Amino acid sequence: MRIIHTADWHLGKMFYGDYLTGDQRAVLAEQFLPLLAEYKPDAVVLAGDVYDRSLPPVEAVELFDEVATKIVKDLGLPFFVIAGNHDSAQRLSFGSRLLETEKFYVAGDLRSLAGPVEMSDAFGPVDIVLLPFADPAKVRLYYNNPDVCDHESALIVLRNAQCPGLLPGRRSIAVAHAFVAGGTGSDSERPLSVGGSDSVSARIFAPFTYAALGHLHGPQQIGCPEVRYSGSLMKYSFSEAAQKKGVVLVDMDGEGQVETTFLPLAPKRDVRILTGFFDDLMAAPEDNADDYILLRLEDKEPVLDGMNRARKKYPHVLAMEMPRRQAAVTDSERTARLRSHTDEELFARFAAAMRPDASLTKAEGDLAREVWTEMEKEEGER
């Protein structure tokens, strides 16, 4: 059995005020779908966070509809999708019973869950068990189980309800969206709960041959190759700048031995952090100036109009940090500094900062002095 495991598409994601839907469309159409055609999996698994929010933009819904249609109809592949904590389980589940006839399996709303989906290969059956994200309070109420008190107990109850007849030794794949203890997170992941523990133990997935996980955006395995996060489709925060993005190719033999291979995806714009002095960064050659950029400056003095100047070289610079910038002086210290310079000197320093490549010409200096003289004259007449 061969599957492609992906997760955390976050369609409709907004990154520093810009929608990434165009970038997401490009990576899905130009890399993800051709990858499916090349590796010919028996199924595709999307482990939650299809959308970035419960009410996604129309363009995001249209994109998912296009991609799902190409996977199921054009490529003829079964497609398994669960809701993540960013999705609306009810909205995502719309039409799920009808879609099953086309081998498009969507699990979100607890009321629509119907147990394992049986697939088969040359070696026999393989059960696909869908475990969508569900808040513990909803699980406690739906299953009328007062023992559900946190995410771990909720997932155990959901697991047991979804596969009551899971046979020992029979190959199975769990698809879940959870924070498994031991995993490494990033800034763009929304916490699963406010207060209390939102982590679950990897032992929950011990009955399964492979656990295809979603939620953590960095590709990683938890304890063993059989419990794995594929990571997100793209980089969604600068804390993910060093992460590799892609999907996981999972090959399972007849004995239930699993081999995983990470297949990288590269969007048209990378997310990068550039560190150095402002002038050095602006002078350095750059081959990928169209990437999403965070400038982490080593300058201690303020860089005047830094963002506008930086965008002349990097059109998509999104933020600028100055961790080494000197602490602000007090009002009295600032006043003392200003009074130690003449008005002409202050203006000259300002002009040099705003126009570092060209100092004031003699004519500009003479004009500035005329202005100061006129202003001083007007002040004296008041």
Rank of each mutant, 00 (worst) to 15 (best):
I273K: 04
I273H: 05
L274T: 01
G276V: 01
F278A: 05
D279R: 06
D280L: 05
L281S: 00
L281V: 03
M282E: 00
A283D: 04
P285A: 00
P285C: 03
P285F: 01
D287N: 10
N288S: 09
N288C: 15
N288Q: 10
Y292P: 12
L295Q: 01
L295R: 04
R296D: 06
R296K: 13
R296T: 10
L297M: 09
L297H: 03
E298C: 09
D299S: 07
K300P: 10
E301P: 05
E301D: 08
P302R: 00
V303I: 12
V303F: 08
V303K: 05
L304S: 04
L304N: 02
L304W: 11
D305N: 15
G306I: 15
G306R: 14
G306A: 14
N308H: 10
N308M: 08
R309C: 02
R311Q: 08
R311L: 04
K313T: 11
Y314L: 09
P315L: 09
H316I: 12
H316P: 05
H316L: 01
H316M: 07
V317G: 12
L318F: 12
L318P: 05
L318K: 03
M320F: 09
M322S: 08
M322L: 11
R324P: 09
A328W: 03
A328G: 15
D331S: 14
D331R: 15
E333R: 11
R334W: 15
T335A: 15
A336Q: 05
R337P: 10
R337L: 13
L338M: 08
L338W: 07
L338Q: 12
R339C: 12
R339S: 09
T342M: 08
